[in-house]
């Protein structure tokens, strides 16, 4: 295929006047139909990367190809093949939802007779049919985000960029948006490049994750591989009585190194998660009574912590 639905970047750089390098030589490869989560804290360079890949900001150095087209030299072809929902859902408060979609369809040169049906189809898909003819100034934050997503899909793009699509949304709206993004990738084969500050979002949605910090990609891989890379899961056991601590520790020692635990006794499993069943059987065989047993997997925050020395939790939006 001449123009695959891929995203590629090589040593991509963006410098701003009198400022640091917002993006400092990143390399990227996102496969067709893949959901790629771009994770990082405030000011890490996520949005700047998206702006460059969507042709809204020229790179200072390096190269990028989106859908097989160069973002600098072939901007019109890139724009024809991508959809994007940027951080601020910049909508016109005086237009209705339906009018926004028709406008977007016209901008993308969809044939006139297709615009109405396509708008109706997308409004239905994002659950805005009832609000379609109301002016956008009366929409909630979640409705605006959903309309923004619908607008990004008007021309059936092969590649979709979503810049922090769920920031500020309630749990219900967030889950609905995740479902829709997942469906687009699975059923329509759309490649999705998603920036997020939510670890859970990257974990649930992304096939692969890139972690960016200070303009550089510090880790990349599937969420499971990234977590596995930095450590084994931990099993924490709380015995039924104080006198159970010794026997529990004796059993757990057989499966790995004991690690500190404030509530009970914990061990890092040398054999990975598969060792959990063995632990349970061994405790049972030793006749130890257990009040509680928990398996702790490493989180993406642990990955971030390991790679940058800082925690990602608690950072605001970029």
């Amino acid at each position: 295929m001449d123009h695959p639905n891929t995203i590629e970047a090589e040593k991509l750089v963006r410098e701003f006047k009198k400022g640091p390098r917002a993006v400092d030589g990143i390399d990227l490869h996102v496969d067709a139909g893949e959901i790629y989560g771009f994770l990082g804290p405030n000011g890490a360079g996520k949005s700047t990367t998206v702006l460059m890949l969507t042709t809204l900001l020229p790179p200072t150095a390096g190269a990028a190809r989106v859908g097989g087209y160069d973002v600098v030299r072939e901007g019109p072809q890139v724009r024809a093949n991508i959809g994007a929902a940027l951080q601020e859902a910049a909508l016109d408060p005086l237009l209705t939802g339906r009018e926004h979609l028709r406008l977007q369809a016209a901008l993308q040169a969809l044939p006139r007779e297709e615009r109405g049906p396509r708008a109706a189809e997308l409004l239905d898909r994002v659950g805005l049919t009832e609000a379609a003819d109301r002016k956008v100034r009366g929409y909630s934050g979640g409705m605006k985000r959903r309309l923004d997503l619908a607008m990004a899909l008007v021309h059936r793009p092969r590649i979709l960029f979503l810049d922090e699509p769920t920031t500020g949304l309630d749990v219900q709206s967030r889950t609905a948006l995740w479902d829709e993004v997942g469906r687009l990738a699975r059923e329509d084969g759309v490649t999705v490049f998603l920036t997020t500050q939510y670890l859970e979002e990257a974990d649930v949605l992304a096939d692969r994750v890139g972690i960016i910090d200070h303009g550089r990609i510090v880790a990349e891989g599937t969420p499971d591989a990234l977590k596995a890379e930095i450590g084994r899961p931990t099993v924490e056991v709380i015995p039924l009585g104080e006198d159970g601590r010794g026997p529990v520790a004796a059993v757990l020692e057989r499966f790995g190194t004991l690690v500190p635990s404030s509530r009970g006794i914990a061990v890092r499993l040398e054999g990975g998660e598969a060792g959990l069943a063995e632990v349970v059987r061994a405790l049972d065989a030793a006749g130890v009574h257990v009040a509680q047993l928990e398996l702790h997997s490493p989180s993406l925050d642990d990955v971030f912590l390991a790679k940058t020395g800082r925690s990602l939790e608690g950072h605001g939006a970029e």
Binding site: T54, T55, L56, P76, Q77, R79, A80, A84, L86, E88, A90, L91, D92, Q104, L107, Q108, A109, M151
Partner: peptide, 14 residues
């Protein structure tokens, strides 16, 4: 100022 122009820049091939 409102960011709507960015939407136009993104949507317009030319």
């Amino acid at each position: 100022e409102t960011g709507f122009a960015r939407r136009l820049l993104l949507a317009a091939p030319h």
